[in-house]
Amino acid sequence: MSVLKRPIVTEKVAGLNSQGKYAFEVDLKANKIEIKKAVEQLYGVNVKQVNTMRVIGKSKTRSSRGRFVTGRTSTYKKAIVTVAEGEIIDIYGEA
């Protein structure tokens, strides 16, 4: 089981990157200590702080062939990781 699933790349998170904050989708059962260790091991940075939140799945409805199809998006856990000052995580793969 991997603690980190994927980095979250949105405009809002890109604005936080200048402050040394990065967002990741993590396993629902992962705690802050596990997330901190995983980020430090994978990216080789010193993590100063980890904030977590559960994003509850939303109910979605759409029309298909004249009928309504309802479903639900998945619930996931998001972690905002603050790294030590002067350190960066290269999520975008820039050289």
Rank of each mutant, 00 (worst) to 15 (best):
I35D: 01
G66S: 04
G86Y: 08
G66I: 03
T10N: 12
M53A: 12
R62A: 07
V9G: 06
A23H: 07
A38F: 01
N51A: 12
K48T: 14
A23I: 02
E11G: 15
F68W: 13
A79P: 08
T82F: 02
I35R: 01
R65A: 07
A38H: 00
A84V: 10
Y76E: 04
R62W: 14
S63A: 10
A84Q: 12
T61L: 09
E87S: 01
R54T: 15
A84K: 11
E25Y: 01
Y76P: 02
T52V: 14
V55C: 08
S74D: 15
V13A: 15
S64V: 12
E40R: 06
E85T: 13
G15L: 11
F68A: 07
V50E: 11
I35A: 03
P7E: 08
V45F: 05
K58L: 02
R54L: 14
V45E: 01
V47G: 03
G15W: 09
G20N: 05
K21G: 04
I88S: 14
A95D: 15
R54G: 04
P7A: 09
M1T: 08
S59W: 05
S64K: 14
K36F: 08
I91C: 05
G86F: 07
E25G: 00
V3E: 03
A95M: 12
K60D: 09
G86Q: 10
K78F: 03
E34P: 00
K29C: 07
V13F: 04
E25W: 01
L42F: 13
E94A: 14
K21Q: 13
V3M: 07
A84C: 08
K58D: 03
A79I: 00
K29A: 11
V39G: 03
V13L: 03
V9F: 09
K78P: 07
R62C: 04
N51G: 08
I89L: 07
I56A: 09
T61F: 04
A30M: 08
A23N: 06
Y43W: 08
E34W: 05
I56Q: 09
V47H: 00
I35P: 00
L28I: 14
K32A: 11
R6H: 11
R72A: 06
G86P: 02
S74L: 11
M53N: 07
V9M: 13
M53G: 04
S74F: 11
Y22K: 00
T82E: 15
V81I: 05
K12Q: 12
I8V: 13
A95T: 12
K21L: 04
S2G: 09
D27S: 13
K36H: 05
K77V: 03
R67H: 13
M1A: 12
Y43Q: 06
